[in-house]
């Protein structure tokens, strides 16, 4: 996958659970799980903004581009 989601790591750093994030962001746990497991096909700017607001981070902290061809 070209885009890797780092939500797990950032949640661990903030000491926050997915349920807590779900409540604060206003996105269902199921949807956040889809995002966390990298199954999401797209993310809305509004969702990304809400997550960044709650976690006090940048979009780049949540997702990184990984080169598939890299050895």
């Amino acid at each position: 996958m070209a885009i890797e989601i780092k939500l797990d790591r950032i949640l661990l750093e903030r000491g926050m659970s997915l349920t807590e994030l779900s409540e604060k962001v206003g996105v269902t746990i199921a949807n956040l799980s889809i995002l966390k497991t990298g199954k999401a096909k797209a993310i809305r700017f509004s969702t990304l903004e809400a997550i960044c607001d709650v976690l006090e981070c940048q979009p780049g902290d949540i997702m990184v581009h990984v080169d598939d061809d890299a050895p």
Binding site: S17, S22, T28, I29, A30, N31, L32, I34
Partner: peptide
């Protein structure tokens, strides 16, 4: 635990 919730629940609080 939370991750086990099925896909069908996700649209409950969405328009």
């Amino acid at each position: 635990m939370a991750e086990k919730i099925g896909l069908e629940d996700k649209s409950l609080d969405e328009p």
